[in-house]
């Protein structure tokens, strides 16, 4: 039994590679899992993804058709932007290993680092 998050990820994978809106039945077929997960499981997880805002949907006849609310790149960009924005970062707060330095400051520190490395290498 795969973990819940893995099935979510697999369904998003299917959605991102689909070229049009698809039904839950299509998703289940395209998951390519042997044995295929139960229809109800796929339905539940797809609806969770919809509620979390990852998927959009529209009713066609009796069934909903789903498509991704944003591209994978959109989400990745958003994720990285959030992580780099320390002002509103509550989740990790210490996330940024980094911030941009002025070229002058950067050059000065580079020089200091090179000097220190040279001093380290010099035999004592």
């Amino acid at each position: 039994m795969p973990r819940f998050g893995e099935l979510e990820a697999a369904i998003m994978e299917v959605m991102w590679s689909a070229d049009k809106a698809i039904t839950v039945r299509d998703v289940r077929d395209r998951l390519g899992r042997e044995p295929a997960p139960a229809y109800n499981t796929v339905l539940t997880v797809t609806e969770i993804l919809y509620r979390k805002g990852w998927l959009a949907r529209e009713k066609h006849g009796r069934a909903f058709r789903y498509w991704p609310a944003g591209s994978r790149d959109d989400y990745t960009a958003q994720l990285v932007a959030e992580a780099l924005d320390s002002a509103q970062d509550r989740a990790a707060a210490l996330v940024r290993f980094m911030e941009k330095m002025e070229p002058g400051e950067m050059a000065e520190i580079r020089r200091a680092l090179d000097d220190a490395k040279a001093a380290d290498r010099r035999p004592r």
Partner: peptide, 8 residues
Amino acid sequence: RLDALTLV
């Protein structure tokens, strides 16, 4: 954040 990480 972890949800998003699992997916992307």
